[in-house]
Design a protein around this nucleic acid. Sequence first.
DNA 1: TGTATTTGACCCTA
DNA 2: TAGGGTCAAATACA
Length: 303
Amino acid sequence: MDSHDHDQGSSWQVMNMVIRELLKGQDSATRLQALLQLKETLPPENYSGPAKDLLVEVLGSFSRAISVLGTETTAEALLGHANLPSFDEQKSESSMKIRPPRRSGYRRRSHPYTCRTVYAKDIEDGYTWRKYGQKIIYGTTHQRSYFRCTHKFDRECQATRQVQKTEDASMFAITYMGEHTCMDATKSAAAPCIISFKTAGDTANTQREAPLFSAPLLPSMKLECDEEVLSGHSPRSASSEFLVFPDLSDLKGSAPAALFAGGASDQYDVTSSINQSPTSCLDMEFDPETFIFDDMLDFGGIN
DNA sequence: TGTATTTGACCCTA
DNA sequence: TAGGGTCAAATACA
């Protein structure tokens, strides 16, 4: 009873947050539209800057709203669909196609989990991963490996990651999806959005248990907004963020080991966890080298 | 013998 | 239908 009431209360709280962010986004978009209508009459310096600011506000509002919805349980709670058939089930029921029983537990990636990509020379990240697949990705030279958290079943940890060598094979592009819940019991005091690593002296095996230290993101770490995806070609999203750092082994001891940047590797998973810090989630940073506001603002059809 | 990895098949999305 | 993500049997390893 109490827990149900608590769940319902938190759901409404989340719903309010989402609505608030969406309303803010709508307001910013409305102002941006008005500004766009005045584009021809305003000098560039009075147009470009405010337009960019408004666009950032819009994107930020949507990002935060999506972040709030960025967990499956939250989404289910909000939609009240926890006991309803999934879309897949509805689809299979409606299609009336006779096919052998589906494999149990099969789920595709479209779930709204956090998705972040980092580059590193070492795939070590302090968590225990179990490899469950490997694929040759079209247009790439290196195979992509798929890992899930070792505690997927015993602690229902939904975290997964994809590891693929970069084109020059000098680094690994590691895409993390989902948040680790397996560590909750042991590091509840640790700040969210923190990734922890053991020291580099213990790197013989990729299997890792609890991290030895934790460290927050440092401002000095480079946060990029790049359109490059794991395949290293064919840009797909302008909302991807990457942290690039040379070698995890350089980060041992007191050096910061956190490497996540809130963001997404593709536009379908542009979610940042509600648990992430403002640094990684709320403060959207755009690299002017790759994020062309003027191009985006030139909607053409909107006048 | 238990656990992790490999790998081909299955299944979903665009 | 192609490409990509996941499953699960087979295999390897400690």
